[in-house]
């Protein structure tokens, strides 16, 4: 198996603060990879570096062997990395289906002239976007809300809509930033099924940040733990669970945990 995403010595400094210090991630194709750590560990910063929202102070990001360091976020999306946001960033005044269809924009097959003159190809492609959008909504279970305003959805549904919208860009790799935040146990268990389904049926590689340990331990195959921007551990869920440094980072001091 080849590494689909690889970072080499990422350092991200904001003025005097070092948010990430020497991050090396290697994610295999078809893997569900978890990035965890206490608040302020630099997880979201790592996401922003990978997806081009931040240019790292040092280090390189490779996607499918190609150097994508410092590319614009829209270029990186086009290369096949989709993402969601920790603080939900939907298009609140657009309908649910329109939110998803926005993701198809980069795959449109008509020019803006064809849209203005309303030529056949425009209708055909718009129709296709609508139907594919409905399929994605079906996948995440939001079909009945298709024509509601996105901003009016409950929190858990908004998170699912963000995933559907990211899938519309046809990614090969999906970055989920705290997808289970604000979900009840029922919803987060559905989310775990969904994430597995995406990996198995849509052949995606998934990198996720999550605080809900049940979700992380339940679906991740490999976990990396950050604290204060430093890598402190990595391994399988089993290894991480019993790693004294991880326990220390989370609980503040080294204690024997039964």
């Amino acid at each position: 198996m080849a590494a689909i995403l690889k970072t080499e010595g990422i350092v991200m400094k904001f003025e005097g603060l070092t948010a990430i210090n020497n991050l090396n991630i290697e994610i295999q194709e078809h893997q569900i990879y978890g990035l965890i750590g206490p608040n302020g560990a630099g997880k979201t910063t790592a996401f922003n570096v990978i997806t081009g929202f931040l240019t790292p102070t040092e280090g390189k990001v490779y996607f499918r062997g190609e150097d994508i360091t410092g590319l614009k976020p829209n270029k990186i999306t086009k290369k096949g990395i989709g993402r969601t946001f920790q603080n939900i960033k939907l298009f609140p005044e657009m309908s649910v289906i329109e939110n998803v269809m926005t993701g198809f924009h980069i795959h449109r097959k008509f020019s803006f002239f064809e849209a203005m003159f309303r030529l056949p190809r425009f209708f055909k492609d718009e129709n296709k976007m609508y139907h594919e959008g409905m399929e994605l909504l079906d996948l995440v279970g939001l079909t009945e809300f298709a024509h509601d305003q996105a901003g009016s959805l409950p929190y858990g549904h908004q998170r699912k809509l963000e995933i559907a919208r990211a899938l519309a860009t046809h990614p090969t790799m999906l970055l989920l930033d705290e997808p289970a935040a604000g979900m009840n146990p029922q919803e987060s268990s559905e989310l775990m099924d969904l994430i597995r389904k995406l990996r198995d049926e849509m052949n995606l590689t998934i990198l996720l940040i999550e605080h809900d340990m049940k979700v992380v331990m339940g679906i991740c195959e490999w976990i990396k733990v950050l604290d204060h921007g430093e890598e402190i551990a990595e391994g399988t869920p089993e290894e991480i669970r019993n790693n004294p440094r991880v326990i220390e980072a989370y609980l503040g001091e080294a204690r024997k945990v039964a």
Partner: peptide
């Protein structure tokens, strides 16, 4: 059209619009 949706997306949230490519 899709272009109009992209424009509205920019209005609603520029960062999310970029994440949509």
């Amino acid at each position: 059209s899709s272009y109009g949706r992209a424009m509205k997306a920019i209005r609603e949230d520029e960062a999310a619009a970029q994440a949509m490519g």
